[in-house]
Design a protein around this nucleic acid. Sequence first.
RNA 1: GACCCGUUCGUCUAUCGGUUAGGACUCCAGGUUUUCAUCCUGGCAAGAAGGGUUCGACUCCCUUACGGGUCGCCA
Length: 437
Amino acid sequence: MTVRTRFAPSPTGYLHVGGARTALFNWLFARKHGGTFVLRVEDTDEARNTEEARQAIFDGMKWLGLDWDEGPEKGGAFGPYYQSQRTAIYDTWFEKLVAAGRVYEDGGAWRFRFERQPVTMHDLVCGEVTIDYTDESNTPDMVVKRSDGSYVFHFVNVVDDLEMEITHVIRGEDHLMNTPKHLQLIAAFGGKAPQYAHIPLILNPDGSKMSKRDAGAAVADYPRQGFLSVAVVNFIALLGWNPKTEQEIFTLAELVERFSLENVNRSPGRFDLEKCKWVNQQHLLDVSVDDFAIASRPFVEAAGLPIPENYPAVIAAVKDKVRLFSDVPAAVDFLLKDDFSYDEDAVAKVRGNAAAGGLLGALATAFEPISDWSADAAKAALNETAQAAGAKPGQLMFPLRVALSGRGHGPDIGDVLTLLGRDRCVARVRHFAEKLS
RNA sequence: GACCCGUUCGUCUAUCGGUUAGGACUCCAGGUUUUCAUCCUGGCAAGAAGGGUUCGACUCCCUUACGGGUCGCCA
């Protein structure tokens, strides 16, 4: 049996992390087993569907790297993949229910008559769960066809999973209580039920349900914030699933190799943006300087900073010090423009050393005549200046850093010296020395 | 309210009856780096509560509490 999974979003809003993770697990499971991953658009709610939402979902999946084998833009033997285009198919399946006497009219709508008995499901994640359908007041017969002739979710979802020969339905736990309904429908059709796996939901940091407007909820925000898609995938994969190793940073291929439904957790997880950023930083370490420069450039431009010719060299100096591409502008601004601001705490720290001003003044003078400027030449000058004043070279490093960058943290001083060039270094050191006095 | 699912450091998690309850993020302290970051070392920090079962329970059972989910002519 070939594995066939599907992701079936309704285009009523942007792709959020919960949906993305559902898509991811389906994708991973299909890839892991050499199966087929289907994308099906559940656009039966005409009032709420929008073209923008549909596009946002496609864009989100593409950004995450979750390519589908069948579905919109791709085709396949089980199309069409928009439910709004499958009415004729639903009509024939509905007739089966009519013929079997399992539906009855109620107020213009058609209800499916449940078998009044306990329904047991064997969920790949939740295990065996039994819901009692004996009491009709708790489980009223469900509407499958609305009075306007359209079909409801439960019906089309089940029909399509059958029609498209879906073998594994991996979906959010919010669907667990729907499953008996679906099982009853499948039984009425005489169909073979897919295997179900209900995965726990993702919560906000405070434990509340994560929904729209919550920080980190929209997948589209991640590229805007400068996340790498592989990092986001890595992070959400580990939220509710664990690979049973202490390794935490994975490539897509490694996730595929290790993924299994048995290791999906049962309890909902909270979304920790800090850890997500850390995961991103770890992945950033593997990005080449050139790729990093290309990816970070839009963020730097958006901040209104000029892009110098030696931009890749600038990036090389800060690459390993940022967690997101969006951190880059603030990390490089002093390298790209002269009117940067000084961090008051760092300046105060330098003022704590009464000799700093004089030393920096002397340093500027020592820098000035260097014709063959380099980090080594500058450092040699720094050592001489310090020795001449009877100070340790190390004492000058921090003041120099603040003089050149305006802050106490940043790239390697040697890199800064090189990138800035002699004249700017002299000017900045002199200016800062005067500022101190 | 009824019905389902769940509950290990603040967060993500390991443990599948016997462990000093391990790792990661965050935070703190040292070390390395003449500077910053990386990195290394160390530290803080957990089995919701109460009953059982057992020689022995985080692990199995029950109850309670708490959290989440579902109860639509939404999906």
